[in-house]
C-alpha cells in the first residue's frame, strides 16, 4: 500500500455536544464532493455515531469496531451514501464497552486513514475532552472546532483548546525524553504558583532553553480553526473575531476564524426528514456559508475583522 500524499485529514470537534459538528462535517463533505473532490467521512464519535442519518441512509452493519476488533481493512468499511465521490465510514455502534483505545492502536488507525484513496478525509469527533477525541484531533492535519454563540459552548471550547494543547505538550515532551515534566509541574502547581495554562507554559519554558524552544515551536504551530454555527444576527459574527482575540490574549494561542453559519430551522427539519441539507437547499444562506468556510479551510483564510466584510448577506 502506498501513502496517498495528496490527502488531507480534517478533524471536527469541540467541547460541547449539539453545536452541529456532524451537520457541518456532512455538509462540508457534500460541498467538497460537489466540487469534484474525493471525500471520505469518518464518524469517530466513539460513543454515539450517527453521521449516516445526515444522508438518509440506514445504520450500516459494519463499523470502525470491525477495524479495531476483527482487523477488517478500513477501505472495505467505506459505504456509499448517495453522493458520488463521497464515502462514509461508520463509527462504533453505541455499546457499553466502547472504552479506551490504546495510543498505538490510534496511530495504526491513522496510518490506515492516510492510505485511503481520497483528497479529503473528514473525521467527525464526539463531544467532550476524552483522550480518544483529543488524540484523534492532534493527529489530523487541520483541527476544527465548532461552537455556537452561547456562553456554555464558548466556555467548553476554551476548556477543550486548553486540554488539547496540554495533551500535545505531554506527547511532545515525552517524545523528547522529558517524560513527566508536564505532569510533575501540574501536580505540584500549588508549589510553583501555577494556576492557568499560560502560567504552566511559562513555568515549563523557564526550566531550560531547550524546553522553551520546543514549547515555542509547538505553540506557533498549534492552530485551531473555528467555525461559529447558529448565528442569529450579524452582530453574532463578531463573536468569532472576539474569541480569536481572547484565545491570543489569555491563552497565547493563535486561531483561525474559518467562518460562520446562520441559524436555520430548515436544518432541523431536514435532519428529521432524513434529507441531505446541501442537496435539498443548495442555494440557502447556510449552504453558501458552508461553501465559503470550506474554501477558507482549504486555503487557510479566515473571516477578517474588517467591518465591510461582515455583511455578505442580510440575516
Amino acid at each position: 500500500m502506498e501513502k496517498n500524499k495528496g490527502c488531507e485529514i480534517w478533524a471536527i470537534g469541540g467541547g460541547k455536544g449539539g453545536t452541529g459538528k456532524s451537520f457541518i462535517t456532512s455538509s462540508i463533505g457534500a460541498h467538497l464532493a460537489a466540487k469534484g473532490k474525493r471525500v471520505v467521512l469518518i464518524d469517530a464519535d466513539w460513543g454515539g455515531a450517527n453521521l449516516h442519518s445526515f444522508f438518509g441512509v440506514n445504520r450500516p452493519q459494519n463499523s470502525l469496531s470491525d477495524f479495531f476488533e476483527k482487523k477488517v481493512p478500513l477501505k472495505s468499511l467505506i459505504m456509499n451514501c448517495g453522493i458520488s465521490g463521497l464515502g462514509l465510514i461508520m463509527g462504533n455502534l453505541p455499546s457499553l464497552d466502547s472504552g479506551d483505545i490504546k495510543y498505538a492502536q490510534k496511530i495504526k488507525f491513522f496510518n490506515h486513514v492516510k492510505m485511503l484513496d481520497a483528497d479529503y478525509i473528514l473525521i467527525d469527533l464526539g463531544a467532550g475532552s476524552h483522550n480518544n477525541t483529543m488524540d484523534t484531533f492532534l493527529l489530523a492535519d487541520k483541527m476544527i472546532v465548532v461552537i455556537i454563540p452561547e456562553i456554555t459552548s464558548i466556555e467548553n471550547m476554551y476548556h477543550f483548546i486548553k486540554n488539547v494543547f496540554f495533551r500535545k505538550l505531554k506527547v511532545v515532551l515525552n517524545s523528547h525524553g522529558l517524560k513527566d515534566s508536564v505532569n510533575d509541574a501540574w501536580k505540584n502547581r500549588g508549589i510553583h504558583g501555577i494556576k492557568t495554562l499560560k502560567e504552566l507554559i511559562a513555568y515549563l519554558a523557564g526550566i531550560s532553553p531547550h524546553i522553551k524552544d520546543i514549547i515555542d515551536k509547538e505553540m506557533s504551530d498549534f492552530r485551531m480553526h473555528i467555525i461559529l454555527n447558529q448565528i442569529r444576527s450579524s452582530r453574532d459574527i463578531t463573536v468569532g473575531t472576539s474569541i480569536k482575540s481572547v484565545c491570543l490574549k489569555f491563552l497565547g494561542m493563535h486561531t483561525q476564524y474559518a467562518g460562520y453559519i446562520e441559524y436555520d430551522n430548515c436544518v432541523t427539519s431536514c435532519i428529521n426528514k432524513k434529507q441531505q441539507y446541501m442537496l435539498t437547499y443548495p442555494f440557502s444562506h447556510v449552504a453558501k456559508s458552508i461553501g465559503r468556510l470550506s474554501d477558507n479551510l482549504i486555503y487557510v483564510k479566515e473571516v477578517t475583522a474588517a467591518t465591510d466584510e461582515y455583511s455578505p448577506g442580510r440575516l
Binding site: 466556555e155 476554551y158 472576539s242 481572547v246 475583522a305
Partner: peptide, 23 residues
C-alpha cells in the same frame, strides 16, 4: 478600527470574555 473593537471587547462583559475570565 482594531483599537475600537478590542477596547469595546475588553471593557464590557461579553459572553466571549466572561466564559474565561473567572480563571
Amino acid at each position: 478600527s482594531s483599537y475600537l473593537r478590542l477596547r469595546a471587547l475588553y471593557s464590557s462583559d461579553s459572553i466571549v470574555t466572561s466564559a474565561i475570565i473567572y480563571e
